[in-house]
């Protein structure tokens, strides 16, 4: 397919072409998705080398596994699912100290909190009131869609701890919102 046609194709069409072995389509998909993937992964792992490795693994997995894309959700969600699991696998293979896993997150400024309060209301405040450990578990399980075991691998804590922290998250959010 011509390059301009590829540029105008949807992600789903590109993935179909990739499944048929079209490397040009992979290039276009890569250009569309590499940026946010790098940055989102960097929020979960501050080691740039590992992030780069995981990003490459992810697009190779897309290249080889495009036929398995069922198209029942956004392509970006599928790509993220692959990426975050590669990251979990990477941690399992060679664990990093915890401080190197966490992204370079700092507390939000008061100004941001105010803006967010307007934007998201009570839920944002309730989430902000959770301890950082609880928020990390919430992110891994809810936002990243990982299983308990995978979340444990990503965060470097036992699976039982993930479960008990999720129980606490639910309790604290329920209390804050009712």
């Amino acid at each position: 397919m011509k390059e301009r046609d590829l540029e105008e194709s949807s992600d789903e069409e590109l993935i179909k072409l990739i499944a048929a072995g079209d490397a040009g389509a992979l290039r276009v998909l890569y250009d569309r998705h590499v940026g946010w993937l790098v940055i989102r992964l960097a929020h979960r792992c501050s080691d740039r080398e590992i992030v780069d490795e995981v990003v490459q693994d992810t697009f190779l997995a897309v290249w080889r596994g495009a036929g398995r894309f069922r198209g029942d959700g956004p392509a970006a969600a599928w790509i993220w699912g692959i990426g975050v699991r590669r990251l979990v696998e990477r941690f399992r293979r060679r664990p990093l100290p915890r401080w190197r896993r966490e992204g370079s997150e700092t507390e939000p400024s008061a100004e941001e909190l105010v803006l967010l309060g307007i934007e998201h209301g009570d839920l944002a405040k309730a989430i902000d009131r959770l301890s950082p450990e609880l928020r990390a578990v919430l992110r891994a399980t809810v936002l990243d869609g990982l299983t308990t075991r995978e979340a444990a691998g990503l965060l470097g804590i036992p699976a039982g701890t993930v479960k008990s922290r999720m129980v606490r998250v639910r309790r604290e959010l329920r209390e804050a919102l009712t």
Partner: peptide
């Protein structure tokens, strides 16, 4: 990486479904 967790959650959840914002970032 200077955004709080809550705001990051919102951004990440939004990016999955929004191609224009993905392009921006």
């Amino acid at each position: 990486g200077r955004l709080g967790d809550t705001a990051s959650f919102s951004v990440e959840a939004h990016l999955v479904g929004c191609a224009p914002c993905r392009r921006l970032i």
